[in-house]
Amino acid sequence: MKFELAIRNSIETECEDYFLGIVDLSHLENTVIEKYNTLIMEYPRAISVGITLPYLISDGLKKSYKKLHRQTNCQLKLITSQLSELLENEGYRTFTMPKSRTTDGNDTSFHEVVASLANMGKIEKNQLITPEVGSMVNWGTVMTNAPLKAFYKKD
C-alpha cells in the first residue's frame, strides 16, 4: 500500500519501538465498536499505533510509570496528528480518537479494542496483552475513510 511506508516514516520520526495495525471496522462485531456505529459509517478503517513503554519501569516506580505514560501520550498525539494530516492531504477524512478511557463497562479502552481487532494482541483482564511485550504498550487510534488494506506489523 502506498500509505504504509509514509505512515511508518511518520511514526519512526517519533519513536523506534512501535506497533502498527490497520483494521476495517465496518464488518466487525464487537460491543465497543457497535457503540460507534455512526462514526464507523463515516470512518470505516482504523489505524492503531502502539508505543512500547520502556522496560526500565519497576513495580515500585509508579511515579516514573505515570511520567512515561504521559510522554508516550504526547508522542501518540503527535503521531496521530501527523497521520491525520498525511491522509487529509491526500483528500481523505480522518478522526483521531481522544486518549480518554472510553470503555465497554469492563475498563477496556477503545484503543485497546481496535488494536486487538487488528490482531496485535488479546484482551485479558480488561487490557490488551501483546505477545512481544505484554501490556507495556500505550495505544492511539486514527479513524479514516482512506482505502487502507488491513495489516499488522510489530517493529
Rank of each mutant, 00 (worst) to 15 (best):
L78A: 12
T94I: 10
T130C: 10
I79Q: 07
T108P: 02
M120L: 14
T144H: 08
D107F: 03
N89M: 08
T96Y: 03
E124H: 07
W139G: 01
R101A: 07
A115R: 00
E88N: 15
E88H: 08
K122G: 07
T96R: 14
T72F: 02
A115K: 00
N145E: 02
C74R: 14
G121W: 03
D104A: 07
N106P: 00
K77E: 12
V113C: 15
T144F: 12
K122F: 07
P98C: 10
T94A: 11
F95V: 04
T80V: 08
N89V: 02
F95E: 13
V137M: 05
N89W: 00
L87H: 12
T103W: 00
T72C: 03
H111L: 01
G105T: 00
Q71P: 00
D104K: 07
K122N: 15
A146G: 04
E85D: 13
L83A: 08
F95Q: 13
I123N: 05
T80E: 15
S100I: 12
G140R: 08
K99N: 12
I123C: 05
F95S: 13
G121Q: 01
T94S: 15
E124T: 10
E124C: 05
L128H: 08
I129L: 10
E124V: 09
T94Q: 13
W139Q: 00
L86A: 06
T144K: 02
Q82V: 04
E85I: 08
I79W: 14
Q127R: 12
K122S: 15
S81L: 12
N106F: 03
L86K: 04
Y92A: 06
T141H: 09
V137A: 05
F110M: 11
L87V: 15
M120S: 05
N106L: 05
N106S: 03
I129H: 10
V137F: 06
T103Y: 01
Q82Y: 05
E132L: 13
W139Y: 15
A118V: 03
T130H: 06
Q127A: 02
Q71C: 02
T103E: 10
L87C: 12
G121E: 01
E112D: 03
V142H: 14
T102E: 11
N89R: 09
E124L: 05
G91Q: 09
Q71E: 15
E112A: 02
Q75C: 07
S109M: 02
R70W: 02
R93V: 03
T96W: 02
M143R: 07
L76C: 05
N138S: 12
N89K: 14
Q127N: 04
T94D: 12
T144S: 14
T80N: 15
E124R: 11
E90N: 11
F110Q: 01
T80R: 10
G134Y: 10
V113F: 06
G134M: 10
K99D: 15
L76Q: 07
E112R: 02
T108V: 14
R70F: 03
N89H: 08
F95C: 13
D104T: 04
A118L: 05
N138Q: 04
L86H: 05
M143I: 12
S84M: 09
L128P: 09
L78Q: 13
T102M: 07
F110H: 10
G121F: 06
A118H: 05
M120E: 12
